[in-house]
């Protein structure tokens, strides 16, 4: 079994690409499963601490950068703390399995983000909290087919077409472009049931660290609206760091 996921991080601040799966790489004659497994070798980690920035362009054409630090453990647990801008400093987001909490130091409240709040945009970005929370393993919920091979952004890519196996998947189909040499997704398109393109994600910059390729800059765009898109950048990342158990609990949010 393999899991592949593109998790947009919390509150648009930490967005961590997690591809989490048992590591069983197979180098040649790649089937879609094998391709995704190779991807996982790059993307999946036991734990990581990262510092990220998200650049949002508002309607006045002004950009804001939101800087945050994230602690991620496995696929479904992450804590994000805002560092800047000043007014958001200390705000935290906690993803615990399928639940999302936010802690506001100003209100000293832990509030669960649920219901229609989940559909709202994260910090004015092109991502909703729901997009961010969407963390079912790709191969668990999608059937993958190798559609074609294509050159994109100067790199040779496998194009995988993903079709949902289950009814309850927000995006019933996706297309993922995977660098055939580095085994890293470079582009993803998410489609509506009708086949209409809803969201586009592009990896615009890569970094090689701790013996793996990892995205450095990701661009998100809601394709139905005419906004500017959101740029998400991983400034620093460290894999395999020990994260204390108590950090990823609700109780820790207020500390």
């Amino acid at each position: 079994m393999m899991e592949n996921k593109l998790i947009a991080g919390l509150a648009g601040v930490a967005l961590v690409l997690l591809f989490n799966a048992p590591q069983s790489a197979c180098a040649n004659a790649p089937t879609p499963e094998q391709i995704l497994q190779r991807v996982d070798a790059n993307m999946v980690f036991e734990s990581a601490i990262s510092k990220t920035s998200m650049t949002i362009t508002n309607r006045r054409g002004r950009t804001t950068s939101i800087i945050s630090k994230s602690w991620s453990k496995g696929e479904k647990n992450a804590l994000v703390e805002y560092l800047a801008p000043a007014r958001n400093k200390g705000t935290k987001m906690l993803m615990l399995d399928d639940e999302l909490y936010t802690y506001s130091p100003a209100a000293d409240r832990i509030i669960q983000i649920s219901g229609h709040l989940l559909r709202q945009s994260v910090s004015g970005s092109d991502l909703s909290y729901e997009d961010m929370m969407e963390n079912d393993a790709l191969l668990e919920v999608y059937d993958a087919v190798l559609d074609s091979e294509e050159v994109w952004d100067g790199r040779n890519c496998f194009v995988l077409a993903l079709k949902a196996k289950k009814m309850e998947i927000a995006y019933p189909s996706r297309k993922v472009w995977i660098d055939s040499e580095r085994y890293l997704p470079l582009k993803e398109e998410r489609y509506a049931k009708s086949g209409k393109l809803l969201k586009k994600i592009e990896i615009r910059d890569l970094v090689r660290t701790q013996n793996r390729w990892y995205p450095r800059e990701i661009f998100f765009k809601d394709m139905l609206s005419n906004g500017q898109g959101t740029i998400y950048r991983i400034e620093e990342i460290q894999f395999g760091v020990d994260i204390p158990e108590h950090l990823l609990t609700k109780a820790a949010l207020r500390r």
């Binding site: 927000a170 019933p172 009708s194 809803l198 139905l224």
Partner: peptide
């Protein structure tokens, strides 16, 4: 005009 909605299962759909 593009309309976007979610079906009973929460699946996104959009049509012209």
């Amino acid at each position: 005009v593009t309309v976007r909605w979610r079906d009973t299962n929460g699946v996104f759909d959009a049509r012209e």
